[in-house]
Design a protein around this nucleic acid. Structure first.
Lengths: 334, 334
DNA sequence: GTGAAAGCGCTAACAA
DNA sequence: TTGTTAGCGCTTTCAC
């Protein structure tokens, strides 16, 4: 194994000089810098992570608690994680993947100093982990927005604004009776923070615009088509649909197309979806989509966490504004 | 921060005794063990991961290189990762998530001793990382099966056998002209190991049974339905379909149902899918499915890696045999 | 069955 | 601008 001592010897300097060249915490003459850099390069030296973390009280690792469980939007979770990983690497941080189930994983990582900070995904409105997280030695950023704001830092997409935006658009298009086809029952029951907020934005906007809106948790697979039939057959005045459920979306879109066949054009159902652009594209035929910038959420959360670690001032609540995307292609098709 | 010295003092023993109680590498009197255990409990002591890794030359961390990129079967990747994480935790290992793109991430983690071993996913048949991996100081297990076997340890689902099994079933059901609707073009082009092996099993079995089989990479979204039409309209003698593409499956199944409406029963197309049970269930209406035990793949790979770390003898190639699942429910529906 | 003490490789005072 | 050295918290010889 190559150690800092090997590098120092090769460069003809002291150990501390090598350390300071790496950290930049001391002014070093250019000549020395170059010699050390060359030695590091030639020996392909990489400081021992454990030794460094022991001496510096910092591991340069971020603990990420990601939901690997069912019912969540896998596609979205993966993209958020991708955003986290790539942003973290830019600042030389590594990501430790914590088993998602319990809060004890957070405490273990915290007490063993294996992590400098935490990123917690899949936060529920009244999450039981909140107290634990607040008591952690290391700073944390939640991806989500629990009800009891506490004094935790949060980053998320503004689902409430998205719910309102969808209503606004559907109303603009002339609909007076609309429906939200949302997350699977298990997600809703858990009061996953985003589902709650989306529903709130939707409901409040409906009230504000004086239109009637109903909310329907949806299964994620082919059963979504059945649910859609139920909803539409139960109330034939529904003419606008807002879908937030990656697993249901393709089936809902398909069924909508099927129902449209042979029906009077006036009876066509309008659909706005909330999903990542890739999902929208895969489903196809969607004219208007509210973009869910999953990777950006992960990156943003990581940036906030890094700011926190750097001691820079940060907002407590950071929400990414929704953006409506109109697909030229889909419009042309229509 | 609580250290081992605090525990030693609280228990009235020496530091080394505490260490030996934790590791079990020395016989300690029951009385002492109990005293130490109580002290650890009361102080909620957790050894400093960095210090431990420095002193013991082992980090108790497994580096996982997972593909977060597009075109892969997100659902499957997530489940594999879940399998890895939960199995690793059982043996007190943590998971470091490595950015997936380059081999340099592996080398960095290796040289900095931040990891004891590697788990590499999304292996291509002729993967450029192979040489790098073989040169790593830490042992590695590939989830996949590259062409040049090298002397790397591999764990994967037996895609080749699965391809053959699907053909066998379709032939048993009387089909003489069958088609494989497979991974997206980008996956096939990269020669992702599983896509290659599935195709090989399919082709070889077709030859062995004397039936004609064609292979069609499929886009993952709604475009899959269009591809299906093309395939079926181009050759109307095709009566059996084998689908391995989570993103395409719902659309293919839907389109198949749509085409079946009003068509003579004799012209019905038979479908076998390769996917995780959850996906099959979400899609619905599938009578026969070859189970892709994603979580088990991750767990199995992790177990092999742990055996490797423990110095136990392991097989070089470990393949999980395919299993055909007949859905009672779907059969009843039909 | 238990302790004392020498490192593990690094960072960051303290000295020069 | 650079070097010397005392820890960081743990594991593991060596000694009893």
């Amino acid at each position: 194994m190559t150690t800092i001592a090997d590098v120092a010897k090769a460069a003809g300097v002291s150990i501390s000089t090598v350390s300071y060249v790496m950290s930049g915490k001391r002014t070093i003459s250019v000549k020395t810098q170059e010699r050390v850099a060359r030695a590091i390069e030639e020996l392909d030296f990489r400081p021992h992570a454990g030794a460094r973390s022991l001496a510096s009280q910092a591991s340069h690792v971020i603990g990420l608690q990601a939901p690997l469980r069912a019912g969540v939007d896998v596609q979205v979770v993966m993209q958020i994680v991708a955003g986290v990983v790539s942003e973290a690497r830019k600042q030389e941080y590594d990501i430790l993947l914590l088993a998602s189930d319990d809060a004890s994983g957070l405490e273990r990582a915290d007490r063993s100093s294996s992590v400098d900070a935490f990123l917690v995904m899949d936060v529920e409105s009244d999450d039981t982990r909140l107290a634990t997280i607040a008591a952690l030695g290391a700073p944390a950023v939640l991806i989500g927005l629990p009800a009891g704001a506490e004094d935790l830092t949060c980053v998320d997409f503004d689902f409430q604004a998205a719910g309102a935006l969808a209503v606004e658009r559907l109303v603009e298009r002339g609909h007076r009776r609309i429906a939200l086809v949302g997350s699977p029952p298990e997600v809703v029951t858990r009061h996953t923070s985003y589902a709650d907020r989306l529903a709130r934005g939707f409901t409040e906007a409906c009230a504000a615009f004086g239109v009637e809106g109903s909310i329907h948790p949806s299964p994620s697979g082919a059963d979504a088509a059945r649910l859609l039939d139920e909803v539409l057959d139960h109330d034939s005045s529904i003419s606008g649909l807002f879908v937030h459920n990656e697993g249901a979306l393709p089936h809902v879109a398909d069924r909508l197309r099927a129902r449209a066949v042979g029906a009077p054009a006036a009876a066509a159902i309008d659909l706005i979806a909330l999903c990542p652009p890739e999902v929208a594209h895969a489903v196809g035929g969607l004219t208007e989509v509210i973009d869910l910038p999953a990777e950006e959420i992960g990156a943003a959360a990581t940036r906030v966490l890094e700011a926190l670690l750097a001691g820079e001032p940060t907002e407590r609540v950071n929400l990414l504004a929704p953006r409506l995307v109109t697909s030229k292609l889909a419009v042309d098709e229509a």
